[in-house]
Design a protein around this nucleic acid. Structure first.
Length: 115
RNA sequence: CAGGUCGGUUGGGCGAUCGCGGUCCUGUGUUUACGGGAUCGAGGAAAGUCCGCACUCCAUAGAGCACGGCGUCGGAUAGCACCCGGGGCGGGGAACCCUCCGUGAGGAGCUAACCUGCCGGACAAGGGCCACAGAAACAAACAGCCACCCUUACCCCCAUCCCCUCUUCCACUGGGAGAGGGGCGCAGGGGUGAGGGGGUGAUGGUGAAAAGGUGGUGUAAAAGACCACCGGCAUCUGCAGUAAUGUGGAUGGCCAGGUAACCCCCGCCGGGAGCAAGGCCAAGCAGGGACGAAGCCGUCUGCGGACGGCGGGAGACUGCUCGUCUUCAUACGUACCCUUUCACACGGUGAUUGGGUCAGUCCCGGGUAGGCCGCACCGAGCGGCGCGGCAACGCACCGCCCAGAGAGAUGAUCGCACAGUGGCGCUUUGGCGUCAUGGACAGAAUGCGGCUUAUAAACGGACCUGAGGU
RNA sequence: GGUCCCGUGGUGUAGCGGCCUAACAUGCGGCCCUGUCAAGGCCGAGAUCGCGGGUUCGAAUCCCGUCGGGACCG
C-alpha cells in the first residue's frame, strides 16, 4: 500500500476518530468517515495492547498488505482508520483479509462491481 | 579421552513471484500526477535508560554554599562509575588424591583453572545507634578478689589479779617461795566476720561483639607488670616493584569494639535543559504603530437601497511628477475605552476633567498546528592488513561511503538445500530411509562510547585438573 | 526525550534496622446466638514481604541490579 493512500495528519486522525462510524471485528476495528476530496485515505494504528514493537509492526504490516489488494474495490472520497487488536499479531494474512472483507461489506463501501 | 572454566564469531542460506521506503538518473505532462532504470534498506542487543560525551539553546565576573555522584594502585580514552592490567581482604568453585563421618549406598571438608563482592577516614573533628541477654555495649559504676590502714563484733592464746590443792621455809589464827588446777579475761598476739578507705581489672555466664592468644615469672590479689613463642598495630629502615603492596630487620608500647550502603569529615568531579534541543519560512490571527476623508450629480426603485460619473482618502507601480491600477467611505452618538475629582442607597450608580477609538490602506509582528533545516552526515566512521602493548587501546597503510522518518518503510507466498525436534521402519546401536513439524531474543527515530538485561542454534579457540599411550 | 511512584494473606492498606515467627479492615472456614436468614459474639486458617546479590551481629525496612505495574511533564 503506497504512501499516497496513507492518512498522515494528526488532525485527520482526530476528526475521523471523533465523528466517524466504527465497525468492530475480533481482529481489527474499522472507522469510516466521508471526505470532501475524491480520494481514499487509510490510517493504520496499533496500540500498546497489541504487544511490543515487533508485534505492533507485524499487525500493521498485515493490515497494509491485506488492504493493498482491496483498495481498487473501495469507494472513493472516504477516510478509513484500521485499529489492530491483540489477536492480529499471531494471525495469517488470509485471516486479516477475510476480517477486512467482512468489515468493508458491513460498512457498505465496496464498489457495486465487487458487491 | 573424561570433566570443569573462560572469552570470541555468526545469529538463518539460495532462488522465483507480488509488494514497501530512501537517493540518483530519466520519460510523458502546465503543476499535482503517472511511469522506467540503477542502487541501498534494522541489531548484537536497535531494548532498558544505569553512566559518560558530542551537538544546540539558556544562564554565567571570580569564588563559595547547598545538593548529587565517585573514592585501592597504575594504565587506556574525547570522556566515563561498571573498560584493561595489577594489589589487599573475603565468598564460591568438578573429578582424582587426601582427611573426617557413616555398616553401606553415600555425605562433608580440602582444592586447580576460573568466577565473584568490597576498597579514603571510626588510634583523637564531632554526633547518633548497637534489640534480647548481660554487672556493664565503651566509660565508669555494681557484684567479686585482696596485702595494708581505720572502726567494730566474735573466737583462741595469755601476762597480771583472784580462788583452791600440794610441797617447802619462817620469828607460825599468819606470811613467803615454788609447782599444779580453775575463774575474770585488760594491754598484747593470732584468727574469723562486717563497714569504710585503698589496690585490682574480666572472671562463671550473657552476647554478633566484653581491653590480643598460649605457657611461665610475679603478687596480698592481680594485670603485657615482666619473659618466651605466636598474631596484630605504629615508627624507622633494607630489598623487589612506577605504585598500591609484598618480604625481611630494629625499636616501641598493647591506644582501648562495631556501624560512615546512619549523619558527618577529607579529596576529586558536576551550571541548567534537552533534537518535541534549536534555527528559518508562506499565509492567517492576537497585539503594536503610521496615515487618515467630503461630498455632489444622474438613472432605476419594491423607497430599504443598487448602479454610473465627478471629486476625496490610503497604498502599489516610478528616482520624481504625470498617469494607470487596487481598494474604501459616514457611522459622531444619551456610543465605547482609559483617566481626574466629587456625591451617594458604595463589589455599584450618578455627575464631572482630560485623552483616545470608530472607514480603509500600509508597516512591524508572535506562540501552537503546518513546511524546510538540524538529519542521514568524511565521522571519537566502517572493513582489511601490519606494527607496538600482557590487555584496554594506539599508530601506519589500503579500500569503502553504508538505512532513514513522515501516524513511523524490511513484508507475503512458493520451491530447494541446512541444522534441530517428534513418529515409523531397518540396523553392526554408530547411523540410514521416510513422513510431519519447524528457525531464539527482538524493530532504528540526533549520533557515539561503556554497562545491564533477553537470546534457539551453530562454528572455532584458550586455560586447568585427572587418566592412558608415545 | 525526561521525571517520579508502587509491588506485603483472596482484596485494600499499615509497618523507626531488633518487641515482625509481620498489624488492621474486609473476605474465607468452624462454633455459638435465632424457628430461619442477616446482624452480632468466639475461635481458626491464610504471607518464599516481586526476584537476585550485597552492607550489617541482624534486612519487609538500607544500597545495587533486575522484572512487572502505574502516573506525570514537554
Amino acid at each position: 500500500m503506497q504512501r499516497k493512500f496513507r492518512l498522515t495528519r494528526s488532525e485527520d486522525f482526530k476528526r475521523v476518530r471523533r465523528s466517524g462510524k466504527s465497525y468492530a471485528h475480533p481482529l481489527v476495528v474499522l472507522i469510516v468517515q466521508k471526505n470532501d476530496q475524491p480520494r481514499l485515505k487509510i490510517g493504520i494504528a496499533a496500540g500498546r495492547t497489541v504487544g511490543t514493537a515487533v508485534y505492533r509492526n507485524r499487525a500493521k504490516r498485515l493490515l497494509r498488505e491485506a488492504m493493498r489488494t482491496l483498495i481498487p474495490s473501495i469507494v472513493s472520497n472516504l477516510d478509513l482508520i484500521l485499529i489492530a487488536r491483540p489477536g492480529l499479531a499471531s494471525a495469517t494474512l488470509e485471516d486479516a483479509r477475510q476480517a477486512l472483507l467482512t468489515l468493508l461489506q458491513r460498512a457498505q463501501i465496496l464498489t457495486p462491481i465487487h458487491e
